[in-house]
Design a protein around this nucleic acid. Structure first.
Lengths: 215, 215, 215, 215
DNA sequence: TTATAAACGAGACGGTACGTCGCGTCTTATT
DNA sequence: AATAAGACGCGACGTACCGTCTCGTTTATAA
């Protein structure tokens, strides 16, 4: 299975084993410079204006060096995006509605920050490169599991009535965000995030919980 | 809104006006051949593997001829996709749950048929090519409006309790489908479609309507 | 068989047949501009400084256009050289020594003008591309035949004693020039050309002809 | 003049001095493996298809190791070629015609064995890479000098009449061989070699020497 | 009937970017 | 020190598509 970051590293990364790889080690600084350059170039000239040559030049790096890490422009972008995604928080305070709203709004924010072109390219890379797709899906699955378990614990505490499918709920929180970003183009506001949570949980919230969540 | 079919028809494509233009008339057969060729090529090599030259050759048509009808590769594809979309039924029988389930399952089916790569590539194209994105979004808006209105009429009939946001409901039906297709890779079954409708409508269904909808 | 100039023209050039080729015809001006640009670039930056991109830019032409005519940088250069070669004169005044000296000096001059890198590249192209090699060899064979016949007529006139191999003589005139250009790097002066003729014909010249030829 | 073998040996490679240098001594085996690998690669893929990386890998040697011995790919090849060249015999029996015929036939044989593509590529490399050209020219000059001196001694012995330019003679022996190989494609037979010697020396041979040399 | 207008096939053209190849230098750890 | 391994900068190569253009050819209406 391929990892998401600068790849092709070959053997190693094995746990425990202090494998000193032979040859000149890769310059970690270079990775950073390239990703930064890519981000800046996108910010400056938009996604369409993103050429590998430009990124390499801006990073002060040879194109070859870039291609040694990412086999494709698409993969570079995918990596860039996935790093942004990792910053979404998943806190658990006991207030289900609050937690989920925070989470949903967090996703919304990071999606907005990344921008549709990047996310779209990410999906394309995942669809075309099975290895990469697997890697990314695994990452998401992890996140998903956490969210599902959060809902499960809430149900156990009696905050939510039983008989609902937590996976469907999660999908109905995250799905619309991606849908809007990629297909309708509507803005992903905090209000929208709240509305999603409201609609997804409304039927299952016990009286003691507030039906409407103002934010 | 962008026009749907082969465009650039010039003045007065109106049906009533028997405006017989001078010169050789366009060959309607050509339109069909091009769309067919595009469809086959996309099916065979995915969206990314779709080149205008290839389509033209496969259709046995000169590139000029193709560009006379669609100003851009993106527009051609948009046209193609929208024709597929038109096949998803939006029937209104009075049974909201049934109608929506049919609709959702229809989308699920057509997404599954299209396949993740195609849809993913589509999002990428939309994101990279603003023109194309606009065109496609317009198509979706149209479909969306119809679905929203259907929900509105159900509310007026009293089948649904007021105080829900129809747009959110629609997003929570369609969104998860795209989300699963592109990101989690889970299958889009009819059961899943039913579960989505159930969860999205559950809180708002009036007693006389069945809360649970089997299959 | 491939012709030496801008190729890939496909059918046509057939004798007599007024084949009107379909599609937009190639712009002959472009051929000229590219060859000129190549020549100038070589003159300006030396052979090592000759890049296809530079030539294309200087010619005000897209790289694609260049590659449509010459499949390779090497072939472009080869073509360039072979055109220079065509300008060597083969006159017949009756004075064998004079004619051959003129011819030899002519070759020497055109080789010097072309320069070792170009000629060397020509040989490489000929060696690698059999088709092209054949074409060029045929061209040379034609020239060679003319020279051999000139010697034959001189022998018939009694200016040269019989019993010599005209082909060997021709080789001993042309061969050393190429040899010096490509391998030793010695200059190809008019004196050297004269010395070659002297040495090659010396044994066969009849008394009435001058043994030594001053030029 | 450039050095012949693996260079950069540092101070005092003199045989007498028992200078045991500190550190690990160079592995002589490595030299052999590299040269062998280079030779095989050239034989297999031609000169143009010879990459330093490929040679190093084939020799089971690090590129660094290779570059420690030869500063440049060109120098490596030069070394390799010069070793082949050393096999062409330059014997001096007193029979000028015989010696030269043997020599000329020897060159013809080794050229035929090398093949036009290799020699052509060699000329191209010499022309493009001044460094390399200089190195190779130096080697040829050495060989040339020997041949010229052989002729000089023959003249001193009175076997050849004075008043001929030995350099021109040498050129008229070697030149036509290269010329035929690279440009006309005619075969380089022993008969042809003999004819060349005959024609080049014919005018200058004293009566006591045989004018015609059979086979 | 003959002009005229447009569609059509074919392919050249300018442009932009891509991903690859090879050279020679460098930086590590190992022998 | 020499060696193995491999990262790195650099420069060029040849390719792929896009959308535009310029031809010659065909097919319909209009004069």
């Amino acid at each position: 299975m391929a990892d998401a970051g600068p790849g092709d590293a070959g053997p190693g990364a094995g746990p425990g084993a202090a494998r000193t790889r032979r040859g000149r080690p890769r310059d970690a600084e270079v990775d950073r410079r390239i990703l930064a350059a890519a981000g800046e170039t996108i910010a400056a000239h938009g996604y369409a204006g993103l050429s590998v040559d430009a990124v390499a030049e801006r990073a002060g790096v040879a194109k070859t060096t870039l291609y040694r890490r990412w086999p494709t422009k698409a993969r570079l972008v995918a990596d860039l995006v996935s790093r942004m995604q990792d910053e979404v928080p998943l806190t658990e305070t006991g207030d289900v509605v609050g937690d989920l709203t925070r989470l949903t709004a967090g996703i919304a924010g990071s999606l907005t920050a990344a921008g549709a072109p990047l996310v779209a390219d990410l999906t394309a890379s995942m669809a075309h490169d099975p290895d990469f797709g697997e890697t990314m899906r695994a990452r998401w699955a992890q996140w998903r599991r956490a969210a599902v378990e959060l809902l499960g614990r809430a149900a156990e505490r009696g905050v939510l009535s039983p008989g609902f499918d937590p996976e469907v709920v999660v999908d109905q929180l995250a799905g619309p965000l991606y849908y809007r970003l990629l297909f309708t183009g509507d803005p992903l506001t905090a209000e929208y995030a709240a509305a999603l949570v409201d609609a997804a949980l409304g039927a299952h919230l016990r009286p003691e919980g507030p039906t409407s969540h103002a934010r």
